[in-house]
Design a protein around this nucleic acid. Structure first.
Lengths: 137, 137
DNA sequence: TCCACACACTTGCAAAATGCAAGTAACTAA
DNA sequence: TTAGTTACTTGCATTTTGCAAGTGTGTGGA
């Protein structure tokens, strides 16, 4: 027989969503990715100023939850661009619900800049780079 | 000039919503209240088994955030029934978004029992109680 | 070749939040 | 009087958060 517990707390969709997203930072990272930010540095500079160790941790967690995917946008050193999977993009509905609730019930709050709509697909600007002699490891 | 910081992190509606609700338990308490639970004991018995000290803390926080209101349903000892304010009920939209996302993207999760729809307005069943001599403090 | 700087993390550590278990206050029921 | 119930509260160990500083690997300029 199967005695393994399938869920950490219960089978409730809300409880399991909160096991992944239930903290002060995860959804803000998703918000920023949804708004077109893609690099660690861009994410770190958001107005809430997420501590960098928390950012690294959240990107790792969201990645292993299948919400964020990483693709290298340059080599030497490898740098990753973070993007949302379909599962991650679907969180737009949750964010929208938060925005509506917050704007209605917390005075003074606003919807943050959505980012340039057409820029989402473009790669980050990489500084012009002349190949130089590779130093041996 | 006004140098007071109006918001803890930023003016973003999402960030400010998460400052109130961004943890693993708050929205589960709201969910239960929305489903008609009203006493501390009922809330403590939900399938996720919130630790009682966390429950007390969350009810306090949600109350001071204007999401939950307390009304005594009996005296000696005073017992409070917790209900959602209009601000709290409006979180139903956020919960619905989580339910939809969770059911779509986390296999096996379900919508929990909504509770008896007609029972929400009724007071909790209070055991029949014959007044007895009051013992001095 | 050296220096300053930038990006993307990583590490150390103190403070805060979480969670388990036990305790308390005021009652009811037998 | 004794046991049980409800609604919390308290103590304490573990985990998470957050600040600050450090590290590795690059670039650009003198």
């Amino acid at each position: 027989m199967n005695t393994a517990k399938p869920f950490a707390r219960s089978a409730c969709a809300v409880a399991n969503s909160l096991d992944i997203l239930g903290d002060k930072w995860s959804l803000l990272v998703v918000r920023d990715l949804l708004h077109g930010k893609r690099t660690y540095g861009e994410l770190a500079l958001s107005p809430e100023r997420i501590p960098t160790n928390i950012l690294a941790d959240r990107l790792e967690r969201l990645h292993s939850a299948g919400i964020v995917s990483r693709t290298p946008y340059q080599q030497r050193p490898v740098r990753y661009a973070y993007t949302l999977t379909q599962k991650g993009s679907a969180l737009g509905e949750v964010l929208l619900a938060y925005v509506r609730w917050g704007k209605t019930h917390i005075p003074g709050t606003v919807t943050l800049n959505q980012g340039p709509a057409g820029s989402v697909a473009a790669a980050p600007a990489v500084r012009s780079r002349r190949p130089r002699a590779k130093r041996a490891g």
